[in-house]
């Protein structure tokens, strides 16, 4: 048993997902199953080579501007706006 209700709740907080009453218990069991299957990864060593495929500098995008989306489109998609801004409740400074 790797997952406890407390750990699930902590995970849910990191992922910004609210849980219904009782949901954490169910998730404990479900994540335990997933974790158990993933544990087998510990058995084999494998070397790292993150650069098997790369792109050259010359293949990257040229620095040339394209027209952006119209502001009305941006604001129209937003759940809440004020004047020309999107709004959310006051954010605590990060």
């Amino acid at each position: 048993m790797v997952y406890s209700v407390k750990r699930i709740e902590a995970l849910a907080a990191v992922a910004r997902i609210s849980l219904r009453p009782g949901e954490a218990e169910r998730l404990c069991r479900e994540l335990d199953t997933m974790y158990a299957r993933a544990e087998v990864l510990q058995d084999t060593a494998a070397g790292e080579n993150p650069f098997l495929e790369t792109v050259l500098l010359s293949e990257l995008r040229e620095d040339r501007a394209q027209p952006p989306l119209p502001r009305e489109t941006v604001l129209r998609m937003a759940p809440a706006t004020r004047d020309r801004y999107l709004t959310v409740p006051r954010a605590v400074e990060e």
């Binding site: 849910a12 997902i17 609210s18 998730l27 994540l31 997933m34």
Partner: peptide
């Protein structure tokens, strides 16, 4: 929390939480 908690279905939540961990 409420947008995501109530917006996502159970399978999605499960995988997000596992993936986060």
């Amino acid at each position: 929390a409420n947008t995501r908690g109530k917006g996502f279905g159970d399978e999605v939540k499960r995988r997000i939480l596992f993936g986060t961990d």
